[in-house]
Amino acid sequence: MPASFGRYVRRRREALRQQDSAYSVRQLAQRIGVEPSYLSKVERDEEAPPSEEKIVRLAGELGEDPDVLLAMAGKVSSDLKRIILARPELFSTLIRQLKDLPDRAVSRVVREVRDGKW
């Protein structure tokens, strides 16, 4: 069974907390700007995942990729939505064509920061 958003967040937070008590529910909730009781409920999947902004902050705190965490919450980041909506035909075709490719093949089209001659 794939990890739910809440379970995944809790597992990552508790792993970090083993080394650093700043990853208590209370302190982490404070840093991302939510109530500790709310974060605790989210971790138990008793509340829906928080807003995009809070998830991005959570990802930063947990050292996770924000897009991955957003996807686990069933969301797509608003900047991606803007990109698709700006050129819907082009990007919907592109995404559909890439959907069945293996990761290695897809990563070939991911734009890397180019290194040159120093």
């Binding site: 991005v56 924000p66 897009d67 990563s107 991911v110 734009r111 890397e112 920061v113 290194d115």
Partner: peptide, 8 residues
């Protein structure tokens, strides 16, 4: 590899 994502 290095990617540029959200100014990171």
């Amino acid at each position: 590899m290095i990617e540029l994502k959200r100014d990171v």
